[in-house]
Structures are given as C-alpha cells and as structure tokens.
C-alpha cells in the first residue's frame, strides 16, 4: 500500500510540475470551472427568491440546500481531479496503442490507468465547496451532531467510490469498443441525476427513476446521503441510507473491478 501511495504521489508531483510549466493554462482552467460554478450558485439563489424550500416539507431550505451543493462540489472536484483526466486519456491510449506501455509495468493496471493524471485545477471547486459548506452550516438553525461530523468524510469517500466505479466501467467500455469518445458526456449525463435532492424524483415517472438511480446505478446516493447527514437532522431514515451508501460503494467497487479486469483480458491492442 505504501508503494502505491508513493507512486501516486510521484504521479501527482509530476502533474504539478507539468501544470506549473503551463501556468497560464492552469489559471485559466481554475477560472473556467469556478466561473461555471458561480453561475450555478447564482441560479440557485435566483430559485430561492421564489420558493423557501425545494419540495414542501423536505427540509431542503436555502442553507441546507447550499450545504447539499457544497457536498456535490467537494465530491465532484475529487473525482474530476483524481480520476477523470486519466479516464479521458484512456480513450486515446486504447486508440493509439499507448495502453501497451502500461500493461507491461509491474503495477496494478487499474490503479495506473485511473490515477496517473491529477488535475490540480479541479481542486479549486472543492476548496470553494468547503467554504460554501462552512457558510451554509454556520447559518443553519441547528448544528450538526458529532456523529454527523464523523460520518460525513466517510460518506464523501463512499460517494467518490461510487462515481469512481462508474468512471472505471465507462473506461472499460473504451477498452472493449476500441473507441468511446462520448465517455465524458455520458458520465456528465449520469451524474446530473446526483445534483439534486432525491425528493424531487416523485410521482409516476420520478418514483421508478429514483429506484433505478438508487438501487441499480446508485448515483442518487452519492451526494444525497452525505449532504442529508450533515445538513438535515440525523433521524431514523438517515441511518438506513448510511448503510445503503456504504453497501452501494463496496458493491460498485467490486463490480467495476470485475468489469475492468474482463475488459483488459479482451484488450486487442492497436496496430503498430
């Protein structure tokens, strides 16, 4: 484990050196993603001018909702920084045969392929997310209990694990298909479901969609469970969700590992 951590830190260091080589590009990337995030926040502020709560009786009033948004920012920034750059590069590696060089190295290929690029500019959103969370929690009527503070980092990790599994399975599709340029788009469409409280998925269409995105592709648990634990009262239903997200994270990691290994075994390599 120490070796993998050490290799990851070496990757991260190399990426930082590279980012610093192209400083203007780095600053531009930070500004672009923060600009996009600011527009989203402004939109939510607009929405709360017209309604005090997202869904009647759900508890998602302005401050808890901003804690929800902050949690989403933190989780997404971790995934975008640590895993997405590598996954996006995988498409090109499969197409050009660059994956060959990875497979001959004495290291777990999934680790190498999913963590060899770190995009430090994506951490900018996460830092803003932490600030936003602090602001939202400080303005709420009740302070989160100690149990919520202890659970929150664990649940963030579970959310990251579910999204990581999704990224890895999409990357595995790249290996099987030889080309999957819509990987990032598809990931974006799927994760869109995780951006809003689960309560909005109600009614004849919303109910089945909520079940699908909770039990089949557990995307709805990613942000909802940690955000609920930190922003809303920790009651009976919340504990059930905690167990559900932990289970979903473990199952997702196992399934994605099997899918990725199967895809690697079927790798054809590009012509030289």
């Amino acid at each position: 484990m120490d070796r993998y951590l050490s290799i990851f830190l070496t990757f991260a260091r190399a990426c930082l050196v590279r980012d610093m080589t192209f400083r203007a590009n780095f600053v531009l990337e930070c500004l672009t993603s923060m600009g996009w995030m600011s527009m989203n926040l402004a939109f939510y502020l607009l929405v709360f001018q017209f309604t005090p709560e997202i869904g009647k009786g759900t508890g998602w009033t302005r401050e808890p909702f901003f804690a929800f948004v902050a949690t989403g920012l933190i989780i997404n920034s971790i995934v975008q920084a640590l895993f997405m750059p590598s996954a996006e590069e995988l498409t090109e590696m499969v197409r050009t045969g660059g994956l060959d060089g990875v497979l001959v190295q004495p290291l777990d290929a999934q680790f190498l392929l999913s963590m060899h690029r770190v995009d430090f500019s994506s951490f900018a959103n996460g830092i803003v997310g932490v600030g936003l969370l602090g602001w939202a929690l400080s303005r709420m009527d009740h302070a989160p209990p100690a149990a919520a503070w202890l659970l929150y980092p664990l649940l963030i990790l579970c959310g990251v694990a579910i999204l990581y599994s999704l990224v890895i399975m999409l990357a595995a599709a790249t290996i099987l298909l030889g080309r999957n340029q819509s990987l990032y788009d598809f990931w974006f469409y799927l994760t869109n479901f995780s951006r809003y409280p689960a309560e909005i998925y109600a009614g004849p269409w919303g109910g089945p969609l909520r079940a699908l995105c909770t039990f089949v592709i557990p995307i709805l648990l990613v942000v909802n469970v940690p955000a609920r634990v930190i922003a809303l009262p920790l009651e009976g239903q919340a504990w059930g969700l905690v167990w559900l997200v932990v289970t979903a994270a473990i199952v997702s990691l196992v399934v994605s590992r099997i899918v990725f290994q199967t895809a690697l075994a079927k790798y054809r390599s590009a012509s030289s």
Binding site: I7, A14, V17, R18, F22, G98, D100, G101, V104, S272
Partner: peptide, 27 residues
C-alpha cells in the same frame, strides 16, 4: 523484462526524462 517500441512514446511528453526515470524507480 522491458519493451521498447520505436513508434510509441513511453516517456512523459511534457516533462523532462528525469521525471519519468524517477517514476520508473518507484514502479
């Protein structure tokens, strides 16, 4: 063993080779 492919680059493109060597040492 090692594999060198004349048509494929295995060093980090934007970085000095010394950085790739360091990574190689870890791997």
């Amino acid at each position: 063993f090692a594999l060198v492919m004349g048509q494929k680059n295995q060093l980090w493109w934007d970085l000095p080779a010394a950085e790739s060597f360091r990574l190689h040492r870890e791997i």
